[in-house]
């Protein structure tokens, strides 16, 4: 009997533990998510020879496979558009979100190249456990210079936590586009904005 129990315990306990761990993983805390994903990405960036050689395409690929699913691009785009979001048709909204995503991915990959050799300090999350909107704070430590705070505004959805804004040193990457978007829409309508974003993403420089 005793032997049977110990066998059972050995066989079943790990299984039970794994089952218990599943929902915990599904509800990974937002600060843990930011830490895990950014460490994974930085690990690849530090060790991948192509990235080390400055291969932009490879860096973008890393971001596409590891980062993109953790961002809510539709919400980011609506935030950047402000009241103009309602003027766009669902079809336009989708195209806007796609173009805005490409622009942000490129910007982010460039920022990552600059920060590859620096430490990141992950701040303790100060939020209600039941909160559905949180702000995850991190700091990039730069030797000999002041640290750069990077905050992730995150929201809880059906597929876990997703970031909808990245605030670098107080500058929101999303709302920073609002004036530009307003201006483009004022001049050429929603389609004008889509076209200028697409042109920008095809490699055209800023005006």
């Amino acid at each position: 009997m005793k032997h049977l129990f110990s066998t059972l315990r050995r066989a079943i306990l790990p299984g039970v533990c794994a089952l218990l761990a599943l929902p915990a993983l599904a509800q990974e805390a937002p600060d843990a998510l930011v830490k895990r994903v950014s460490q994974e990405v930085l690990q690849v960036i530090k060790t991948d020879p192509k990235v080390q050689a400055g291969d932009q395409a490879r860096i973008r690929e890393v971001i596409e496979t590891k980062l993109v699913q953790h961002f809510d691009f539709l919400r980011m785009t609506s935030l950047a558009m402000g009241r103009n979001w309602a003027k766009a048709t669902p079809e336009q909204q989708k195209r806007l979100a796609d173009e805005f995503k490409s622009l942000l991915v490129r910007t982010y990959s460039n920022a990552l190249i600059q920060y590859r050799n620096q430490e990141i300090d992950y701040k303790a999350l100060r939020a209600d456990p039941n909160a559905t909107e949180v702000n995850v704070r991190t700091e990039v430590i730069r030797p000999g210079q002041s640290a750069v705070p990077i905050d992730y505004a995150m929201t809880k959805g059906p597929s876990g936590w997703k970031a909808y804004d990245v605030v670098v040193g107080g500058v929101s990457l999303v709302t920073n586009y609002r004036d530009e978007f307003n201006e483009q829409i004022r001049q050429g309508g929603v389609d004008g904005l889509i076209n200028s974003l697409a042109a920008r993403n095809k490699g055209g420089g800023a005006k």
């Binding site: 107080g170 500058v171 920073n176 586009y177 004036d179 530009e180 483009q184 800023a206």
Partner: peptide, 20 residues
């Protein structure tokens, strides 16, 4: 950052400066 991110550099720099 501005090289990569901006559509209109003047407007981008203005908003970033004021936010900062």
């Amino acid at each position: 950052m501005v090289d990569q991110a901006a559509i209109d550099r003047y407007t981008f720099i203005r908003r970033a400066y004021l936010q900062r």
